[in-house]
Design a protein around this nucleic acid. Structure first.
Length: 562
DNA sequence: ACTTTGTTGGTGTT
DNA sequence: AACACCAACAAAGT
């Protein structure tokens, strides 16, 4: 597709970046500059989300890095990013008045807060005579078009969803990045200073500390650098592993792959994501043995999710470049297929966006028509033990520690801790766990997060509640020696492999010798797994039976009414 | 009414 | 590594 270019237009446009922190394949950006004489890209740091209780430090750091990268990329094109601070419904109309803006463009967003915010902003701007234009870009397809294809009622199974995808045809081609930008119109106005007040940076990009976060050191937390530049680099490096791309099967990937503690021989890797790129050609990783220690260096997944969440990488670019790689393999054996293939992963994202957009109260149990009504408890003590990595189950606590420290855990680790909190052991409400993930994950994405929590709690999409992840057995098949657990829970580092996943079974003298006495140095398990999971299964069975009765009654009523 | 399918369970046997 | 068995779900297709 041809690149949008600087035109001889007359419009003063404001391009409002929210997600889509990129210049490539950005329809809102293209619309903003199409007939512009001048254009100003802006991002609004909204106090609604700019706080540690809503967005954890890892994700906030990633966002700020992405903004700096976007600013640099825009500067290369003769523009720059201005970051405004305040409520969008207040700040944007004020900015438009100050700079006599004619047109504001942005990308559609389906999240409830975003929808409310955008409606308010649009109302205020249109009342002031400013034209508003929004376009689709965060998903492969326009969500509204997909909703039309399923008559407003999204499927709750992946196979039905693929039929919708089939009807949609291939996603549109990606737009190129503009080679040059219209002149920005801030920086000359004194008012700019007022709008970015309180921030040292003249263009308003704050530091973590300025936002009230504790400073993070370079070797802490999520290490992948946010932004379009790095996102595209990582996408292409991943796609260059053609054999791996061809055979990728998500369920075969390893949630305990250790990226940090690989011993003195190899340089200490900075993060899962630093390693992601490092090795081309290795297959899905297997178990933790010396023979395949190189595979250990390979994260099992692409680690691109944070870049997708913020729109640093366009899903359509991902799709088309992935397709190009797959095309080269035609005739060289069956490639993996959705739902487990890489393309399948992209489609899961699309699936959850569709269901999330088309389901009322998608992020709640009550009032959510696709969500099973289950009498979850709201036990603060159990929940706190889970969230603070104090359950006494090393695999669960290690994963929760990695989440807290790094803002990222493998998909299957997310399964394990989500199952444990909800239907597997603690029977705590999935909405509580959802909130923790929403705050702490670098890649937290409303539609995907809520969808996955419903999946794991057997509230929707998945219903085999008797299949429970063992909190002391699941990780063992990937990591027999417990290297992952020992890395994140150093208190267990001298525990013999035999007891790493179940330290309470170790004889007291073994615990003492390892320097880890259960109940003193490390918590005793908060529940007996066998008893707890049985109780959970019973409760869900009861709830399911009630649901069945209710649907049967509703069906009869409907019949009688006709 | 019945069968098949469903991204990613655990345990035990060969 | 592959398979049966556990106990048995929902949704879609026949």
């Amino acid at each position: 597709m041809t690149a949008p270019s600087v035109s001889n237009g007359t419009t003063r446009s404001l391009i409002w970046f929210r997600k889509a922190l990129r210049v490539h394949d950005n329809p809102a950006l293209a619309a903003g500059i199409a007939r512009a004489k001048s254009a100003q890209p802006v991002f609004v740091l909204d106090p609604w989300f700019c706080k540690p209780s809503r967005v954890g430090a890892n994700r906030m750091r990633f966002l700020l890095q992405s903004l700096r990268d976007l600013d640099a990329t825009l500067r290369e094109r003769g523009s720059s990013l201005l970051v405004l601070h305040g409520e969008p419904r207040v700040v944007l109309p004020r900015a438009c008045k100050t700079w006599k803006v004619d047109l504001v463009t942005w990308e559609h967003d389906i999240e409830p807060y975003a929808k409310m915010r955008d409606t308010a902003v649009r109302g205020a701007l249109e009342r002031a005579g400013v034209e508003c234009a929004s376009s689709s870009g965060h998903t492969l397809y326009d969500v509204e078009e997909m909703l039309a294809k399923c008559h407003g009622k999204p499927p709750t199974t992946y196979s039905q969803f693929l039929k919708i995808v089939d009807k949609m045809g291939a996603p549109a081609a990606a737009l190129d990045a503009p080679k040059a930008m219209p002149a920005p119109f801030t920086g000359t106005a004194e008012e700019t200073k007022e709008l970015v007040a309180g921030v040292a940076d003249a263009y308003g990009i704050p530091t973590l500390e300025e936002l009230g976060y504790e400073a993070m050191h370079d070797d802490e937390g999520f290490q992948a650098i946010g932004g379009e530049t790095e996102g595209l680099r990582r996408l292409r490096r991943q796609l260059s592993r053609t054999e791996w791309v061809h055979t990728f099967q998500k369920p075969d990937t390893n949630p305990t792959t250790l990226f940090h503690a690989l011993g003195a021989k190899k340089p200490k890797p900075k993060s899962p994501f630093e390693i992601a790129a490092r090795d081309a050609g290795s297959k899905n990783d297997a178990t933790n043995t010396a023979a395949n220690s190189d595979m250990l260096m390979t994260p099992s997944t692409t680690a691109l999710s944070p870049y997708m969440k913020f729109g640093c990488v366009s899903p359509r670019v991902f799709y088309h470049e992935l397709n190009a790689v797959l095309a080269k393999f035609e005739g060289k054996g069956q490639p993996s297929q959705p739902p487990v293939s890489l393309m399948g992963q992209l489609m899961w994202r699309e699936f959850y966006y569709l269901v999330g957009a088309g389901t009322p109260n998608f992020d709640k149990m009550e009032g959510n028509p696709i969500c099973r009504q289950i009498p979850w408890n709201k036990d603060r003590e159990l929940f706190a033990a889970w969230e603070n990595a104090q359950t006494g189950f090393p695999w669960i606590d290690a994963a929760m520690t990695q989440l807290r420290l790094e803002g990222w855990i493998h998909h299957l680790a997310r399964h394990a801790v989500a199952c444990f909190l909800t239907r597997g052991d603690l029977f705590v409400h999935w909405e509580w766990g959802r909130d923790t993930f929403d705050r702490d994950l670098v890649d937290a994405d409303w539609a995907l997060n809520n969808g996955n929590w419903m999946w794991l709690s057997c509230s929707c999409f998945f219903y085999q509640y008797f299949r429970v992840y063992g909190p002391h057995s699941f990780a063992k098949k990937y990591d027999k020696d417990g290297a992952y657990v020992k890395h994140y829970l150093p208190v267990l580092k001298n525990m013999p492999a035999k007891y790493v996943y179940e330290p309470w079974l170790a004889p007291l003298d073994v615990q003492k010798k390892a320097g880890c006495v259960v109940g003193v140095d490390y918590p005793a398990p908060i529940v007996d797994h066998a008893t707890a999971s049985k109780a959970c299964i019973d409760k869900i069975a009861t709830a399911y039976a009630a649901h069945k009765d209710a649907t049967a009654v509703a069906g009869k009523k409907r019949k009688a009414g006709e």
